[in-house]
Write a protein that binds this DNA or RNA. Structure first.
Length: 244
DNA sequence: AAGTTGAAGAAAATTACCTCA
DNA sequence: ACTGAGGTAATTTTCTTCAAC
């Protein structure tokens, strides 16, 4: 991975204040998520082996033309940012368009977009499989490992989470559409069935009805069936009349 | 104990760069 | 050479959580 010196400019700023917030974040995540054994074998996680270093001063990217001025999201690192000459600059590979200095090459007109290398993307993907969110230490470790900025790692994970969510939404949508179709069909069939029952009272149904009635009117003492007169059947009268 | 405030971080929304067909 | 679409890095805004007071 080659360093692009042209990206080293004063627009990279800030660091991450690693104070009281850090343990809190670890707790918030419920500790480190479970790591799949296969991934554990393949990935050497930087935060488990490397210590913090001067990267705490690592700058983060900032839009060259920022008419609104710095926002809150920009500044958590500003209090400890080094002078521009001390910033690392962007190391990532860029596209075939060539390298531009984000602030001087285009007269401060707009941001330039880097393209992460395959290696960087793969590594970030691997990390994402294990942790969809990172604490500051992890961000710094990954950034150091990939020669990126803390902010770039942060942004990548934010965008990656967004992509995941979007894809999941698409999957959910498809599933719900299928479920909706199924329920619609089910509903249609049930309606059909109801219509059939209404239109066609089979003898079987009447027998069933009759049996229900006779059971309800069974005499508890002699087990003789007493059929209520309510039921409009000639058997009713006969049965009742035979009963003592 | 309950309310307020500020910091930090994530989500959501948006912008803009870059590549490719 | 031009163009539009898609992918994605980067930015901005909004929301949530938590600690300190």
């Amino acid at each position: 991975m080659d360093v692009d010196p042209s990206m080293c400019n004063g627009d990279w700023s800030g660091n991450q204040s690693m104070t009281s917030q850090e343990p809190k974040l670890m707790d918030k995540d419920g500790g480190q998520p479970r790591i799949h054994p296969s991934l554990q074998l393949e990935l050497k996680l930087p935060w488990s082996t490397e210590t913090e270093s001067g990267d705490i001063y690592e700058a983060k990217s900032r839009r060259t033309l920022n008419v609104r001025g710095p926002t809150r999201a920009d500044d958590p690192c500003d209090d400890m940012k080094p002078p521009p000459s001390a910033s690392r600059g962007v190391i990532a590979e860029r596209g075939s368009q060539g390298c531009h200095n984000a602030s001087e090459g285009d007269g401060g007109r707009g941001r330039k977009k880097l393209r992460l290398s395959k290696e960087q993307s793969c590594y970030l993907e691997g990390c994402f499989k294990e942790h969809t969110t990172l604490n500051p230490k992890q961000k710094l470790a990954i950034a150091k490992r990939l020669n990126l900025l803390h902010r770039q790692v942060e942004v990548w994970f934010q965008n990656r989470r967004a992509r995941t969510k979007l894809k999941q939404s698409e999957v959910d949508y498809k599933y719900l559409m299928q479920w909706c179709e199924y329920l619609t069909e089910e509903n249609r069939m049930l309606h059909e069935e109801i219509q059939e029952f209404k239109a066609f009272k089979s003898p079987l149904q009447n027998v069933h009805h009759y049996k229900q009635q006779t059971m309800l009117t069974m005499c508890p003492s002699c087990q003789h069936a007493i059929v209520l007169r309510k039921i409009d059947s000639f058997h009713d009268t006969a049965d009742r009349e035979n009963h003592p």
